[in-house]
């Protein structure tokens, strides 16, 4: 299995922990990652500025993958949704497809609908499989309750095929259990982390993230995990700010990428997984895990 790693902006510009842990864990499970030479933003935050920019931007990304004959791994929920939506809409609307291709032609690219896009949760759960993961891990992590936060765009909208649904158990939860941890539900796990309010009002966004963290703490979770750079950016990076804004000093929970947990189970060093870059108290979790 070889994929083109389309990082997107957030992962590539600040969430280095995600990228490091992805690059460290996936090859151990037989997934080869190709680093692209040419890439651009997928356009999610720019949707408000132009309706058509995301189509062009995503078609460009898909065309680049197609020119290399590879499918894409998009580790960011937003990128994944936008790429899926673009594939879906372009296939439905031949006029849009030809309009976008007309632009791409000038860059020597063409998108025909061949290249597909996958989210790491699909790669891990559907392509690699729980069995392979359980057999590959070096040591089972202790049964610590961990809450998953799949992120809005992994489950919504159901209009397009999404990796997760809220009907059944989440793939992410099964993956958590596969490495020995205990998946712990919390009421607001299908809710939004608030990242997209950040440009409008950081305070409001951080308040939203604080709600989620408080709920997870209330059910006794020892950590929050996700596979979305936006969610972890909010739940991990903004904990100090949340303490200040809400005045609640209890907001403190290790928040980290699932791939980082997986890396620990695969016997990788925390440094390799970029865990020193997490702002939340991951060392608390590390201590429990190491015992």
């Amino acid at each position: 299995m070889k994929f083109l790693l389309y990082l997107g902006c957030t992962t590539a510009t600040k969430q280095y922990g995600y990228e490091l842990s992805l690059r460290a864990t996936l090859p151990l499970l037989g997934v080869e990652l190709e680093h692209p030479k040419d890439m651009n933003c997928c356009g999610v935050p720019m949707k408000g500025i132009s309706k058509f920019y995301p189509y062009y931007a995503c078609a460009r990304i898909m065309a680049l993958a197609e020119s290399q004959g590879l499918d894409i791994i998009a580790p960011c929920n937003g990128c994944h949704l936008n790429l899926t939506e673009t594939i879906y809409k372009l296939k439905l609307n031949p006029l849009l497809m030809s309009a976008v291709n007309e632009l791409l032609k000038e860059e020597g690219l063409k998108y025909t609908g061949k290249a597909m896009v996958y989210h790491p949760v699909e790669i891990l759960h559907d392509k690699i499989g729980i069995e392979k993961i359980t057999s590959s891990i070096k040591r089972k992590l202790p049964e610590i309750p961990v809450s998953s936060h799949p992120g809005c765009h992994l489950i919504r909208p159901t209009e397009f095929p999404r990796p997760e649904t809220r009907d059944g158990p989440l793939k992410l939860d099964r993956l958590i259990e596969a490495i020995g941890l205990k998946a712990r539900d919390y009421p607001e796990k299908y809710e939004c982390c608030g990242a997209a309010i950040l440009p409008y009002s950081p305070e409001a966004a951080i308040k939203t993230a604080a709600f989620r963290i408080k709920r997870a703490l209330a059910v006794g979770s020892k950590a929050i995990t996700s596979l979305c750079p936006y969610c972890i950016d909010m739940l991990d990076g903004k904990q100090d700010a949340a303490k200040t804004i809400t005045g609640d000093q209890n907001i403190s929970i290790p928040a980290l990428y699932y791939t980082q947990l997986l890396g620990l189970a695969l016997g990788l060093d925390e440094k390799e997984l970029g865990m020193s870059l997490n702002m939340s108290p991951v060392e608390v979790l590390l201590e429990e895990v190491k015992v």
Binding site: Y186, P187, E188, Y190, R215, A218
Partner: peptide
């Protein structure tokens, strides 16, 4: 839009 259950089992 949705009904949620808190940690103590109460609905909100």
């Amino acid at each position: 839009m949705e009904i949620l259950q808190d940690a103590d089992g109460s609905l909100y």
